[in-house]
Amino acid sequence: MTDYKLDKEKLKKLDEYIDSIEKKEGALINILHEAQDMFGYLPEDLQLFIARKLDIPAAKVFGVTTFYSFFTMEPHGKHLISICMGTACFVKGADKILNEFKNKLNIKDNNTSEDGLFTIDTLRCVGACGLAPVVTVDGKVYGRVKVEDVEKIISEYTGK
């Protein structure tokens, strides 16, 4: 194996996972899911490792990684806050809720709080328009969220 700047144990497990797949053609998305579950994100070194392991161009791996919004090339905080920005949610104030989360968590340029506890993400549509505006934290759904609810939601994950 080439010297990657990645956790060697996790890399070994990913290597074994890829080896266990009988038909590797068409398995890229599943492999990327598994890699992201293991590492938390898909850094460039990890994408290169996968490309070499599958004997496919790195550009193909990068293209799939950047095409699907589920995949991320940046590490996330411990908790992922996703705010729906679909039409129903936006009309009902999702932009104000997003700004309140950013203000309360002191998030400026990037999407992760300085303490590494929270990452904020926006989604095109959650598919729960009747609950608009919708926020999810680590997959838990909060419906009909108001700006006043933001602090309470955060406190559920900080204990404060």
Rank of each mutant, 00 (worst) to 15 (best):
K13C: 12
K13T: 01
L14A: 03
D15A: 05
E16W: 02
E16C: 04
Y17M: 11
Y17G: 06
Y17V: 06
I18W: 06
I18C: 13
D19I: 05
D19A: 11
S20P: 03
I21W: 06
E22R: 00
K23P: 06
K24V: 12
E25L: 14
G26H: 05
G26T: 02
G26M: 05
G26P: 09
A27K: 01
A27W: 11
I29L: 11
I29H: 12
I29A: 13
I29T: 14
I29P: 08
N30F: 11
I31F: 14
I31V: 15
L32E: 02
L32G: 05
A35G: 08
Q36G: 04
M38Y: 00
F39K: 00
G40Q: 02
Y41P: 12
Y41K: 00
Y41T: 00
L42E: 04
P43Q: 00
P43D: 03
P43C: 05
P43T: 00
L46Y: 00
Q47T: 01
Q47R: 04
Q47N: 05
L48G: 13
L48Y: 10
L48E: 15
F49A: 01
F49N: 01
I50H: 06
I50S: 09
A51T: 00
R52K: 14
R52M: 14
R52D: 15
L54G: 05
D55R: 01
I56R: 02
I56W: 07
P57A: 01
A58S: 13
A58H: 08
A59F: 12
A59L: 14
A59H: 03
V61D: 12
V61H: 09
F62R: 06
V64Q: 08
T65V: 15
T66Q: 08
T66Y: 06
T66C: 03
F67P: 04
Y68V: 12
S69M: 08
S69N: 07
F71C: 05
T72D: 14
T72M: 09
T72W: 15
T72Q: 09
M73R: 02
M73Y: 06
E74R: 00
E74S: 06
P75M: 01
P75N: 00
H76C: 06
K78H: 03
H79L: 11
L80A: 09
L80P: 09
I81H: 10
S82F: 03
S82Y: 02
S82M: 13
I83Q: 09
I83G: 07
I83P: 06
C84Y: 04
M85E: 10
M85H: 01
G86A: 07
T87I: 12
T87F: 04
A88R: 03
C89D: 08
C89M: 09
F90W: 03
F90L: 07
V91M: 10
K92F: 15
K92E: 15
K92H: 15
G93D: 10
G93R: 01
A94M: 09
A94E: 07
D95L: 13
K96A: 15
K96G: 08
K96H: 10
L98Q: 04
L98Y: 08
L98I: 04
L98E: 12
N99P: 05
K102Y: 04
K102P: 07
N103E: 15
N103W: 05
N103A: 15
K104E: 13
I107D: 05
I107Q: 10
K108E: 13
K108F: 11
D109F: 10
